[in-house]
Amino acid sequence: MADPIKQFELVHLVPLKIGGADFGFTNSALHMFIAVGVTAAFLLLTTTGRNLVPGRLQSMAELSYEFIAGTVRQAAGTEGMKFFPLVFSIFMFVLFGNLIGMIPGAFTVTSHIIVTAALALLVITTVIIYGIMKHGTHWFALFAPAGLPKAILPVIVVIEVISFLSRPISLSLRLFGNMTAGHIALKVFAGFAVAMVGAGAVGIAGATLPIFMITALTAFEFLVAVLQAYVFTILTCIYLNDALHPGHH
């Protein structure tokens, strides 16, 4: 049976070493640029006409813009729109990172914890830096909800700090776990099918079962790919709201 883990292996396309450390251009890097390229093509090439009455493609680009803009406004208010480029970039990058990974033979950028963790840390760092820049020390009131009795305050503050720090962890693990697990499941069922076909006529008949499973899982994985991009985005918006409005949550 083919190794279901092999699809996650990094392969050097252009080796590059800086000070002994490996910074080679890998298949992952290539797929990152593909995701960026597809996003840019989808959003820029369709809107070159700036048509007042949009065509189908421009309409799709506008719909995705308005969808994310609506999410940002709903979760973080109108002020949240200053983070719109960041949120839209994250959504598009994760979405196309996930979707391009569904193409057979392609690499799934978001199946690597370091990528999802970097994106999650980017979000949380933005929250902390912007929060302190805008609200100064008042921002730390986020960890001490108003109106609490003094006695339980230390406990609550500890809980709030832990909950805040666990956000980037859960944010990155959720996306990484979903992508990795889905792709492994697909590969495992595909491996079953291949192994059963090798077992003769009965095996070929039996191989239809994992094939059905793969078909269903593929549809499900497309759903997961889109859904996880959205989940990552909406959680980003909710966390950014804390940078803008600490204390109301």
């Binding site: 890097a29 820029l44 970039s89």
Partner: peptide, 21 residues
């Protein structure tokens, strides 16, 4: 050992996307 390369190229790719965005 793969993290360095991924972080570098992610920074470049995502930075490019953010700039375009």
């Amino acid at each position: 050992e793969t993290f360095g390369s991924q972080l570098l190229w992610l920074a470049i790719a995502f930075g490019l996307l953010y700039y375009l965005m």
